[in-house]
Each structure stands twice: as structure tokens, then as C-alpha cells.
Amino acid sequence: MSEKKSITIKVNGISHSLEVEPRMHLGDMLRLELNLTGTHLGCEHGVCGACTLIFNGEAVRSCLMLAVQADGAEITTIEGMALPDGTLHPLQLAFHEHHGLQCGFCTPGMIMSLVAYLQDNPSADEANIREALSGNICRCTGYQAIVKSALSAAEVMRGETG
């Protein structure tokens, strides 16, 4: 039963080859096998959004994908957002400046969702941002500051400020 499978996966530009049990989901694989604990696991049934990451260019829930399904894929996690010299991504900076996080549990999912969303919708307005974040739950009731952070980062990413 449940024979292990070999997979090769590129995470934040680094290639990894490993053996995984088919039932291990992608989020668990990152955390337990690669020690990339920046991807947070909340509900593990696709509702809370904390485990969101970029899979072949698109935002996905890493708890709803099996690690074996990611064989050959390119993945970006929160650990891949800052530049190698430590310079934070505009979204990370904006969350820092506008108090976009309190406990920080939902933050990686918020940021990875927004990276994907703003790439496709650079001129998103507040209503768009709220809809885009409807699949990410914050339990510190910090949505006002999160939306403010997102709008501010969007401006920077469009090259208007910052």
C-alpha cells in the first residue's frame, strides 16, 4: 500500500529530488521534508487560504494538492519573496508599514494570494482586493490594514510610488 514516489520539484529557484508518500500534500511536504515552514497550514481543507503559494505561475492551495502532483513543477513560497540580499518585496514592505499583520499566521497566504492577483490585475481597486482576499481568513480582524497594505503595495508595484 501507498508506495513512495520520487519527485523533482523546484522551490524558489532551487531544485529538490525526494521521495514522498502519495497522501502527503504539498504544504506538508514543504514544511516537513524541505523545512520551509513559511507556508502555514490552517484548516487543511481549502477554506482558510493560509497555505496559498504560487504553483507554475498561479495561486493554489497547497493543502489541496498532493506533493506527487507537483512533480516537475516550479513553486514560489513566502521564503522566495524577498531578494537574496534580504530586500523585502513591496508587498512585504507594505504589510510592515501599514500594520497588515498582527499574529502573522495568515500573512504568507495573504501575500502569496496578492502577488498572483496583482500580477494579473495591477490596477485593482479596494473592492477587487476585498474580493480577491475573500478566500483568505484573518482572525485578528485585521482586514482594514491588510487591504490598505495591498493597495499601497499595488501602487508601488505599478511604479507610481516607492
Partner: peptide, 11 residues
Amino acid sequence: MKSAQFDYHKP
């Protein structure tokens, strides 16, 4: 690990 064990097939 959340799911019970299963065999994985990829036709």
C-alpha cells in the same frame, strides 16, 4: 498527514 493511505496512479 491528513489523508488515509492510498495508492497513486497517473495514467
